[in-house]
């Protein structure tokens, strides 16, 4: 151990290795770069053209999609029997407005709940309500970690014309809001709002927010739905997430298939994934390897630690100079 107490070249090596070791540990602990801790699988690219709310906008055709896997909700009753397997997510932001386009396969559009016992196709996105809080462990949030939900329903914009299509009506005596109690009570379900802005803090607590600031529209094609949801980067109140270029946002998805009598907990859901709000657009040269993987700070940190540890061991105990094991320094 005399090597440790002198200021020999060996000591200087030790100090250098110790510094490298501290640096490596620092990489791991302090999350030095935005892409250090987890890899994002969704990216919201900066767009030079306004995508608008049209789900068939040309902007989406040029934007790459990420497929997010969905599974049947089976945490709490009523549970789903499954159905929609994945949703393709594309996102851009333009003029400080976040646009997300969701597409999924559903050949049977369910756009009307005018018949008793029918249910509409729908899709929703869910964000933790306060950006810096922990991500809730399960969907629909928890009491101390609420989620903000944007839900688009296919039947919301339906202008319903009921009995005249299916029967004959002599007269409706009273038709003002008093005779639609849900409307008179201000229930958002009775409105034609295309997208509802909601908050939840656990199963069964879903509540509309006072700030209905989400815009959206849906369009059904031959194979399925395309829905665009949009919201300005900043939103009033504290129950919604704030977005900014460079942010990493947690988001989860849910899809309902009306044909399968999906509604409420009977839905297909994804786990929380991360959405990066990138500063560049998709067409610009990437500053990260083309494989879209982030710079492997993790791997670099581990390699640095390994080198440092090996170096430390060698420095302390010295290189073995007795390879042949005869207790005599080897002859070179």
């Amino acid at each position: 151990m005399t090597a440790l107490t002198s200021t020999s070249p060996r000591t200087r090596r030790l100090i250098a290795i110790g510094l490298v070791l501290m640096l490596a540990i620092g990489f791991r602990i302090f999350d030095v770069t935005p892409a250090a801790a987890q890899s994002s699988i969704l990216t919201s690219w900066s767009s030079t053209t306004d995508p608008g709310l049209d789900p068939n906008s040309a902007v989406w055709a040029d934007t790459p999609a990420t497929s997010v896997q969905l599974t049947a909700q089976n945490v709490t009753p009523p549970m789903s029997t499954g159905g929609i397997r994945a949703v393709n997510v594309r996102s851009v932001h333009y003029n400080n407005m976040l646009y997300v386009n969701l597409q999924w396969a559903d050949t049977t559009p369910d756009m009307s709940t005018a018949s008793v016992g029918t249910f509409a196709d729908a899709v929703a996105m869910q964000f933790p309500s306060v950006a810096a809080s922990s991500v809730p462990a399960i969907c629909m949030g928890q009491a101390d970690s609420a989620v903000n939900i944007w839900q688009w329903r296919a039947d919301a914009q339906e202008g319903v014309s009921l009995m005249p299509d299916r029967g004959y009506v002599d007269l409706y005596q009273f038709t003002d809001d008093l005779y639609y109690p849900a409307r008179a009570a201000g229930n958002i379900q009775s409105s034609t709002a295309a997208v509802q802005n909601l908050i939840a803090g656990g199963f069964g607590t879903l509540t509309p927010l006072n700030e209905q600031v989400i815009a959206g529209a849906g369009s059904h094609g031959a194979l399925g739905w395309s829905v665009t949801l949009a919201r300005p980067f900043t939103a009033p109140g504290e129950n919604q997430p704030a977005f900014a270029t460079g942010d990493m946002v947690d988001v989860a998805f849910a899809v309902w298939d009306g044909t399968n009598k999906d509604r409420n907990g009977q839905k297909s859901v994804s786990a929380f994934v991360r959405l990066e709000i990138a500063g560049n657009d998709f067409a610009a040269p990437p500053t990260v390897p083309a494989s879209d993987a982030p710079f492997p700070w993790d791997t670099l940190a581990l390699i640095t630690i390994a080198v440092a540890v090996v170096g430390l061991v060698l420095a302390v105990f010295g290189r073995p100079s007795d390879w042949d094991g005869d207790d005599q320094p080897d002859q070179t």
Partner: peptide
């Protein structure tokens, strides 16, 4: 409409014009 499904006597009824 879980109540429509759950009532054994089917006395809970869906109203399409209010969606409740």
């Amino acid at each position: 409409q879980k109540c429509v499904e759950g009532c054994p006597y089917k006395k809970s009824m869906y109203r399409p014009t209010t969606r409740t």
